[in-house]
Amino acid sequence: MEETHCCIYSKMASKCSIDLFVISLTVVLMVRVLYVMYRCGKPFPKGASESFSTLIVLGSGGHTAEMLSLLSVLRKDRFTPRFYIAAATDNMSLQKARTFEDSLADKAAVKEASSQFAQIYRSREVGQSYVTSVWTTVVAIAHALWLMIRIRPQVILCNGPGTCIPLCGIAFLFKVLGIRWSSIFYVESVARVKKLSLSGLLLYKLRMADQFFVQWPQLQKKYPRAHYVGCLM
């Protein structure tokens, strides 16, 4: 009789301690998430770092042209090394980025191997069925995670393509887990005049972008936390 009681007590005690552990872990995580959300968008103190490793997410066509326009005026010594990522189906964008990096190397004063290039699987291609896209989404997220573990960027620059969403999500996770603190800068495409793109809307609403830029004054009125910066093109 006593033995069974004892057993029940010890079981209850161990159950309690597991519960307590789960609850405290949840509380700690929630506090951490809230802290990360509070810290996002807060500027760094002066002279915080000499340079930042930078991830640049490229999209097709107009997106890449706009991104290169921004990169051409950024101080390269402050944003180094640079990692470029484009969708696996998009060969043009990485080629343009390589041409851009080569033109910098010609100007000298740029350290060797300061840039790297990678392609990323897309979760869903245009016209793909939703059934197969479940599997491809899993593959795409795993691939994004692998790339982010390797790169661990301190700065992420993106301007619209859907491929930036898993990367920014993982960056947020890294911040919560204390793996890497990164600052996300998002520039909405010049083609968006009245409405944000889905990627832009997600990053704005979830406050995942540290600084958010729009190229038309109409959009800034609708999304007051955004900076209006005029056309990049």
């Binding site: 500027p43 760094f44 103190p45 002066k46 002279g47 915080a48 770092s49 930042f52 326009s69 921004l70 990169l71 051409s72 005026v73 950024l74 101080r75 402050r78 700065v155 600052s183 800068f185 520039v187 540290d210 600084q211 830029f213 190229q215 900076h227 910066v229 005029g230 056309c231 990049l232 093109m233």
Partner: peptide, 18 residues
């Protein structure tokens, strides 16, 4: 034509560059 100077200025300030 416009350029990325206003964006670059805000990013630089945010990251604590002079």
């Amino acid at each position: 034509p416009g350029d990325g100077t206003p964006v670059a200025r805000i990013i630089d300030r945010f990251l604590g560059f002079p």
